[in-house]
């Protein structure tokens, strides 16, 4: 739709306008880690701009899926059916390219199949996504190996770049209402402007940095290579050696979508809850009679790779991994997924 400049002096003003229309979540830095924060008016009372620095950092610790596919959510009740509550409008201001790509995985599973998840879709439709550039990728980032860029190449409702403290917004038709909240604060940016040139330089530098960190591409037929390794327990044993089965890699993963449904008595009725699940869990595939096709941990370890890099690619034409590096950062055993895949 258009590209706009929001000068640093107007950032808080714009955000305060957004607050009157939406619940706005922004990344903030807490003890060097980035976390999502529900913006409140008092956050905008401080000067200088308190919101911008975290926008330049990499993705938040919490995957964006948490907002659409909640870690724990009631999805049914019995005998009276659950009444569906329409969620209010939200803006996630500052998601990253890796998390945007991860939402596509959830769209495929929860939003596009024969059976659609009304809870996910309601949250997805009511949430505007502003995708912020990653001018400073870290050592744990590897989106380039998945064919992604450290900025929004496509998708989302708007793209945000921080240039010299000012905000540049590339706004799609779906994100027009964000600018409409205070159009007087924005100025049009024309192609060839110095701000856009600076943005492009920043983006290029970020890509160069990522390509240096992750210089060696993976096997171009990763799906086939993973599938071919499945009957080689020695390979998986070698890489799983330091795993303590904490499931941190799975709980932090922005693409993992496995879940568990469980029922609990509530008064005279029953509440059904959906909670994130982990395929490393020993009982994950066990059936009522006790049989378990993946009773040994090593099979569950290999299954994770098979699911993300082979089955999902075959079924949906994309990998269920976006290079965010959360699995590696969470891992107590220092298992780097890049190393595992790099040996295929």
């Amino acid at each position: 739709m258009g590209t706009y400049l929001l000068p640093k002096s107007s950032i808080h003003l714009w955000l305060s306008k957004l607050l009157s229309r939406y619940a706005v979540f922004v990344p903030i830095e807490v003890e060097k880690q980035i976390h999502w924060h529900l913006l409140e008016p008092k956050d905008l009372e401080t000067e200088p701009d308190s919101i911008t620095p975290a926008q330049r950092r990499i993705r938040a610790s919490e995957p964006v899926k948490s907002f659409m596919f909640e870690p724990r959510q009631q999805v049914a009740s019995f005998p009276d059916a659950l009444t569906f509550k329409q969620p209010g409008p939200r803006v996630l201001l500052g998601i990253k390219s890796c998390d945007l790509a991860a939402l596509k995985v959830h769209d495929k599973i929860l939003g596009e199949g024969e059976f659609k998840d009304p809870f996910y879709l309601a949250q997805r439709k009511n949430t505007l996504l502003v995708v912020a550039d990653c001018p400073e990728p870290e050592q744990s980032c590897f989106c380039n190996l998945l064919g992604l860029t450290p900025y929004a190449a496509e998708g989302g409702d708007a793209a945000l770049s921080v240039v010299d403290g000012n905000w540049l917004l590339d706004v799609n038709e779906s994100g027009k209402e964000l600018v409409d909240a205070a159009p007087e604060l924005f100025t049009d940016l024309r192609e060839g402007s110095s701000e856009l040139a600076r943005r492009d330089e920043q983006r290029h530098a970020a890509l160069v940095s990522l390509n240096l960190t992750n210089a060696r591409p993976w096997n171009p037929d990763l799906a086939g290579a993973v599938a071919a390794k499945l009957d080689d327990p020695a390979f998986w044993n070698k890489h799983a050696e330091t795993c303590v089965e904490c499931f941190g890699c799975l709980m932090g993963c922005p693409t993992c979508y496995c879940f568990l449904l469980y029922d609990q008595a509530k008064g005279a009725g029953v509440e059904r809850t959906r909670t994130w699940d982990a395929c490393y869990e020993a009982a994950y595939a066990r059936v009522g009679g006790g049989a378990n096709p993946r009773a040994e941990f090593i099979k569950r370890f290999a299954n994770r790779f098979s699911c993300k890099f082979s089955a999902f690619k075959t079924d949906h034409g994309m990998y269920a991994c976006t290079g965010c590096g959360r699995c590696f950062k969470a891992c107590m055993g220092k298992i780097d997924i890049r190393k595992v895949l790099g040996e295929l």
Binding site: F115, L261, A285
Partner: peptide
């Protein structure tokens, strides 16, 4: 095929059997 079919709608992935989701 007996696998752990939980959600029934091809989402939760508990019933995965190779390339198949048994529930779907």
């Amino acid at each position: 095929m007996e696998t752990n079919m939980s959600c029934g709608v091809g989402q939760c992935r508990h019933c995965r059997l190779g390339p198949y989701l048994t529930c779907k």
